[in-house]
Computed example of a mutant assay.
Amino acid sequence: MTINAETKIVGLIGHPISHSFSPFIHNTAFELTGLNYKYIAFDVLPENLKDALKGLVALGIKGVNVTIPHKEAVIESLDNVSPEARIIGAVNTIVNENGTLSGHNTDVYGFTESLKKYKNLISNTPVFIFGAGGSARAVIYSLITNFQPERIVIANRNISRAEGITRHFSQVLGYKDFEVKEFFLPEIAGDIKSSRLVVNTTPIGMYPNINELPVPVDDFFHDGQVVYDLVYNPPMTKFLKLARRKGAEVISGIEMLILQASKSFELWTGKEMPIAEIKKLLLKELKPRRKKGKNDT
């Protein structure tokens, strides 16, 4: 698409940003929809974050995605923050409306939408989560507000971090049915097996370390479970392969990646992203990047 004086700019701020597939996703979507937008990745050091946000306003940039390490720090510099982003404590999308910067968390939408067809299966049942980082916070918010889990077990190497998350959501959402466990066998074996939904929110198994696993065996997986890995490169992780082999339904991180991007796209443009076409093209794009050895997250 030709860039001209009418081209609207959106993009990504973070550090580092070379790994991101967001430019591919959004620029492909703009081409498919014929919208005169361009998506650019901006590598912003933490000490330059406030100046970068002022630059969005000064230059009339329509909005940006926000990635590590800025998702939490950016909140204090925004004019408005959506309720879910405020509760989660992280923003991944900013919209610039005539100089007013509004923050959103579209990870919630991405996770919720990707699980919607399993709602009857997983609602009011136990859930097991690997990890207690920013992605886990969005997952927990989505689960509590949309699926009402019977209990949520969080396994994390840093116990105090996981306990901090449980205290936070107990206070802000009134949900009390949490358990925190060490990230090691055999303590978590029974919890995984008894959970209807198992979610990996860690980067374990991400390219190039594709043979790593949150748990080294597959004895906990079975028919009737839904196993979700937020890692999207490779699209079918070893973790998901083990679960599928035991009869579980599996969901790739590709689903959440594209759906959260589609919500950002909609917030900026007011249009729907052509999700099916983007997914097909992204899967093709992932293969050559892995062969070239580029770092993906």
Rank of each mutant, 00 (worst) to 15 (best):
T269Y: 07
E255R: 14
P235T: 07
E76I: 09
K193M: 03
M236G: 01
V231K: 11
A41D: 01
P235W: 13
P46M: 03
T93M: 12
K294F: 15
V231F: 06
H168I: 09
D107I: 05
G131S: 01
T33F: 12
I210S: 03
S262R: 13
K8Y: 09
T67F: 03
R289I: 03
K238Y: 11
K279N: 02
V227A: 01
K291P: 04
I251M: 14
I88A: 02
V231L: 10
S22Q: 03
G89A: 05
P83E: 14
Q148V: 02
R86M: 13
R161H: 11
T67C: 06
V57H: 10
I13W: 11
I9G: 04
A90R: 08
H19N: 06
E31T: 14
E76L: 07
A41M: 01
M1P: 11
I87S: 11
K8F: 07
G253N: 04
K8I: 14
Q148E: 13
M1K: 13
N96A: 03
I122L: 02
V172A: 02
F221D: 11
A248E: 08
F184S: 15
D218C: 10
F265G: 02
L143Y: 10
K71I: 00
G63M: 11
Y141E: 00
K176T: 14
D218Y: 03
T106H: 13
E31R: 14
T2N: 14
P83K: 14
V10K: 03
N146A: 08
N200Y: 10
L185W: 01
V81E: 06
R161E: 10
E179N: 08
E84M: 07
L282I: 04
I210G: 10
V199G: 04
F221G: 09
R157Q: 11
L213D: 00
G293L: 01
A138P: 05
H104P: 01
L49C: 01
E150P: 00
S82A: 15
G99A: 08
L213W: 09
P126H: 02
D43R: 08
E266G: 00
K38R: 15
P235C: 10
Y109E: 06
I188S: 05
L49K: 04
G164E: 06
I13R: 13
G55L: 12
G190I: 03
R196Y: 06
I258A: 03
V127F: 13
G247S: 06
D218A: 15
E113P: 00
I140C: 03
L143A: 07
G14F: 07
T28C: 12
V108W: 12
L242I: 07
